[in-house]
Design a binder for these strands. Sequence first.
RNA 1: GGGGCCGUAGCUCAAUUGGUUAGAGCAUCGGACUGUCGAUCCGAAGGUUGAGGGUUCGAUCCCCUUCGGCCUCGCCA
Length: 607
Amino acid sequence: MKDFMLKRTIYCGKVGIDDVGKEVIVSGWVHSYRDHGNLVFIDLRDREGLVQLVFDPEINGEIHKLARQVRCEWVVAAGGLVRNRSEGMENPKIPTGRIEIACTAFEILNTADTPPFEIDNADKVAEELRLANRFLDLRRPAMQNRLMVRHRVAKIVRDYFYNEGFIEIETPMLGKSTPEGARDFLVPSRLCEGSFYALPQSPQLFKQILMVAGMDRYFQIVRCFRDEDPRADRQAEFTQIDVEMSFVDVGDVIGIHEKMVAEVWKGILGIDVKLPMRRMTYADAMRDYGIDRPDLRFDMKLRDISDIAAKCDFKVFTSTVKNGGIVKGLCAPGGSNAYSRNDIEKTLTAFVSDLGAKGLAWFKVAAAEDGSGIDLQSSIAKFFSPALRKAIIERFNAQNGDLLLFVADKQAAANKALAPLRIKLGRELKLVSDSQYEFVWVVDFPLMEWNENEKRFDSLHHPFTAPVPEDLHKLDTDPGNIRSQAYDIVLNGNEIGGGSIRIHQPAVQEKIFSLLNISKQQAEDRFGFFLRALRYGAPPHGGIAFGLDRLTMLLTGTDNIRDVIAFPKTQRGQCLMTEAPGSVDQKQLEELNLRTQKHSHEPEKKE
RNA sequence: GGGGCCGUAGCUCAAUUGGUUAGAGCAUCGGACUGUCGAUCCGAAGGUUGAGGGUUCGAUCCCCUUCGGCCUCGCCA
């Protein structure tokens, strides 16, 4: 006994010209209906697409009457004969537009409340409303397609790793909190009163231990959790393609994974990615692009002009250089026509000052007044001798009509402002194409960087990253200049994956901990299990992790991570559909030996 | 924790410098209609202008507080 009579024989979207003359049964959601009093048309939607149902009172008066009652988003099943639409009645807008189903059977499986927004127009609807009614939002083909792409990426990746001899192994979700890195999500333990699990920020130590255990090649498509503020491309709960391999060097890991990426791009977009992908050192990336994830779809490299600036009479420049800063800038091709003086001094300057820059110096490249070639024009041009102006033009190989923009600051501060400025200009000057994919491996990262506030070194990647062997001797003398065997894969300015060769000798690991100001005792408390594992015969090993969410974003051309996650959270980490997080019963708290507490000093209410 | 944008009918938006009864399209409901496909035509209903307070003769508009969404800095080994 079924609770419906008509059983589907084919998906709506799959009914085609080959089915003409066949009896079929379709089921799905009423996308739209057109009632002519006589004929009734229903566009029926399922996962695979739309198909037009026709109800003719001459054919079957009873179901025609029934069909007149349906409304959008009702769930129905219909059976009938597939037939060609006669000439002039075809609808080229939908793939099934050449055929229709002349219905002889019809069943209303469910009615539906009027939806809070029209499925067809949901792309224009406030995201808040879409998230609260995700079951409706996900009925949209665009959303279903993104989830489908995500699924297919996972499938390609699984198949790829299966063929390469990798084993998918699950690691715990309830783990131990490690104070480094991002903030942990904590889960109170009922059985161990007063203790907490942490949700994994990544399976880092587990996958390394799997290498110690001899699994040799591990991968996992795994949820990770970092309790930090979300962004457009970042959720607290996200998915990694996590990989680890034994007896490998940097080249091995890169080789395996660029092939994986190429297979994904081929499988999803049909695009042949040229292998091997190019590589760039961290130092070069920072010098030319001001950032460790350069967008190589366009050139517009940053140039340091500190040597020229030191000789000018512009005090902002000279004093910056004198105080150990740099003057760095870029040349926007055609920028002096695209940006008015007001654009530069208001919009662009505001843009960089939001990023911490103190100002933005500019020159327009124009025909020289004396008719001899080109020259720089600016309110500050007078502080530069003709020779210096010429030197600047040459540094950028600037052309008439270009716009030169400079930030004078400490090196890191200048890069921090210029790198996003470069991206903004590249976009606005239409130097980037959406169909262009420029991959690059960034390598030779510094192992550590000095943390001025804490007076210690911090890992750039994480504390298990192996140094470059030739730099090992600097461990005691010059730790800030040790390069690491870390690598990031960057696509169009997005980091899509990153990893490293790991330290496999306990002595080196302990040395690194001490440089990071982690005492023997602390290391023992936090990573004791791991250090112990390293002492029992750890093979050389390394790995990588890709962000599945971000990969899917790039493959589907969205800049909103929530579009590639079925049930995402808002910027405050809430699910607007389920209203998580929520309060819990007192009884649950008691079982966990937890008590919630209001601020002891509540802000005073104004009278 | 900081900065910015936004919130008007179910949805998307409008509303002159602060001024009369807050409008339109779509959706909804009722009716008409023989091939539509954004159907069409006729009609109806639909509002705590996110919430609270203030200024004012008068507030969607100005000010304060607050809630929510988005973007962003910090944060994200």
